[in-house]
Design a protein around this nucleic acid. Sequence first.
DNA 1: AAATGTCACAACCGCCGCCAA
DNA 2: GTTGGCGGCGGTTGTGACATT
Length: 384
Amino acid sequence: MGRGPCCDKNGLKKGPWTQEEDQKLMDYIQKHGHGSWRTLPKNAGLARCGKSCRLRWTNYLRPDIKRGRFSFEEEETIIQLHSILGNKWSAIAARLPGRTDNEIKNYWNTHIRKRLLRMGIDPVTHSPRLDLLDLSSILGSSIYNPTQLHLSRLLGIDPVVNSELLRLASNILSSQCNNLNLLPQNLQENDQFSNPQIQNQFSSLVQAQQLQNPIQEIPSCTTENTFVSDPQLQAQQLQNPIQEIPSCTAENTLVSDPQLMQANVDQISSNPIDFPGQNVQSDLYQDNGVPCSLDPNFVPILNYGFFNSDQYIVHPSPESSDFQQNHNQNFNFASVLSTPASSPKTLNSLSTHINSSTEDERDSYCSNMLNFEIPDLLDMSDFM
DNA sequence: AAATGTCACAACCGCCGCCAA
DNA sequence: GTTGGCGGCGGTTGTGACATT
């Protein structure tokens, strides 16, 4: 038997709320609390259904709602959490004080999602879209005809890509990193690798390829990495403290198993973790940036090169020295853009706001997130 | 200046899970 | 075990504001 509507629609008002209605609702809840939403409208003298009242209160009138544009840290947190939680907007909102699930959902759909798509990142899986970044075919054709190479544009790297480098990268990739010990030999055989620029190009190629097929294609990582696709690995990982998840870069960390994703959801839900912008005490974190309160089972997640490799989705506040150090290594907030934590926005459902930072600036931020680092796996310094 | 297109966001809709009777 | 009420959640829509032609 299906359920009927939550209330009798007849005579009940829909659409935008008036100031008078808002005032009535606020006055009533401040006096009596919301109690039963079903009976609230009648008691408060509102011609609305309870559900409408609840939404208006939780999404707009609640006094602790933070209005205005999302800060950089908030946006970063949303992306990180979304990569673990998926479209669990309420769970994400629980980690962002003052933000509602509806607001986050809207912001995701209208800003972040579009930007990720523009960057060639699948907003669902948070991995590069294979249809846009089929490196195998690109590399394959480029090796024989380097002039056709558009990879550099895709990756945003220097357009001058040495064909010899491509051949070498292709050879290495074709062996799927099965024997990374051969790398030094291969590299040493090629004088090109004395050039740091070439090294960066090479590592970008390898990293991009790893991002394409992260689970299948990095066998040498299996005992260390944090991809979770195998039940045994999951069990193993659940037994290992987070400190023992070492060298595979966080960029490579994808959670492909729904159960583990749920475990993360539970972990986050049950174990409050502070996020940037929340005035986190730095002593809540260990030396490696992992919060002391964080359950060891918690799985670090994909990032876009924004975080250092040994960082996880939680990091200390910007005030902490660890945070500064880790981020200064490869990313500088101030150098990318300065976004006010919140811009003025009137308390009116029909109002709009003035963008204080442009989409281009945010794009710049995201492109920085895609600046691949040389993974620990391929530490070029060893070959110098 | 008007028409049209696009964007952003508040609000609604329908489904789901929990819980009490 | 079943049923119905309720709150909550995620997806979608409607509409005003702004940008472009």
